[in-house]
């Protein structure tokens, strides 16, 4: 019996499944509604003191350096903008789900969070460098891309171990390892969770295809998340311990980026890499401070 398939098929029947807080949902609906005002958003966020304090923390982090002391929620919302508020909300959801993870020996919670945020930040930086505009969705997608692994860790820790062991032994990726052993992967698992939560299709599409960007509806964004995932690893953010290599030029995701982002022929990959790494270094200091 394929235990992972069983988990996948019955995901919606699990009572203790990590929840997507209704407040977060309301906020996201508002930040995406053209007619919403900062007063509306403030009204919703106020109901969750945790969220209020997280938003104030980010608003006061060095990222928004110019501000002296942001103590009112309304000021914070205006300072950060709706999209950034949405990001903080997404992050708080990931954080609260991850808190359910057992303190597992091989799969370290903090490292996992670092990898998730790192991927969001990297996706944002890549989009900036390439002049792409995803309205900040690249950040949420990056942060959420591996939610399926959280489920594995909570509901099938021994299988997670097995997948990790096998990946290590054979020198293959987590994705290839789970596909080989079970034919089910964390992208499918994460996508199903997001659809149970009722999140926008657009987000689900990306989570589902972050290892198969050519099958995504939004190929470019899926490809950006795929590449960010790789670069987050090569930049040494979050869990790893694995030193295997990859070649962007041969990567499915990178090929899509090159094609769809209309990159010029003389695009300098090494230069891009140096620039990216430099910015990731800066972002590490800024982003990880607020949480």
């Amino acid at each position: 019996m394929n235990k992972l398939k069983e988990l996948y098929d019955n995901l919606d029947k699990i009572d203790s499944l990590p929840a997507f807080p209704s407040i977060a949902f309301e906020v996201i609906n508002l930040t995406r509604s053209p007619s919403a005002t900062s007063k509306d958003i403030e009204g919703v966020i106020k109901k969750d003191p945790n969220l209020v304090s997280q938003i104030l923390k980010v608003a006061n982090s060095s990222f928004y350096g110019l501000s002296k002391d942001v103590s009112s929620l309304n000021h914070a919302i205006n300072l950060m903008g709706f999209l950034q508020i949405e990001n903080v909300v997404m992050i708080s959801v990931v954080l609260s789900s991850v808190k359910k993870m057992p303190l597992h020996k091989n799969f370290n919670r903090d490292k996992f969070l670092e990898h998730s945020f790192g991927c969001g930040v990297t996706a944002k930086i890549i989009s900036n460098i390439l002049n792409l505009n995803f309205n900040s969705a690249e950040f949420s997608c990056g942060v959420m891309h591996d939610m399926g692994k959280v489920l594995l860790d909570i509901y099938a820790p021994e299988i997670l171990d097995e997948i990790l062991d096998n990946a290590y032994k054979e020198g293959i990726s987590f994705y290839d390892s789970e596909m080989k052993l079970y034919g089910i992967n964390h992208s499918m698992m994460g996508a199903k969770l997001l659809s149970i939560w009722g999140l926008p299709e657009m987000l689900i599409d990306i989570i589902k295809n972050h290892h198969s960007p050519s099958s995504a509806d939004n190929r470019l964004l899926a490809a950006i998340i795929h590449v960010s995932d790789l670069l987050t690893y090569s930049e040494g953010i979050g869990f790893g311990g694995n030193y295997s290599k990859f070649t962007l030029e041969e990567d499915e995701g990178w090929k899509i980026v090159v094609e769809e982002a209309n990159m010029s022929k003389d695009f300098d990959l090494a230069f891009f890499t140096f620039k990216l790494y430099e910015e990731i270094e800066n972002a590490k200091k800024i982003y990880f401070e607020g949480f």
Binding site: L230, G236, S244, K245, L248, L269, A270, F271, T273
Partner: peptide
């Protein structure tokens, strides 16, 4: 932080953990 990719080269740029070759 040196690069050759601007030049005409058949070399492939490979990423390792915090290093390129």
């Amino acid at each position: 932080t040196e690069s050759i990719s601007r030049l005409n080269t058949k070399f492939k740029l490979c990423h390792f953990k915090m290093a390129i070759a």
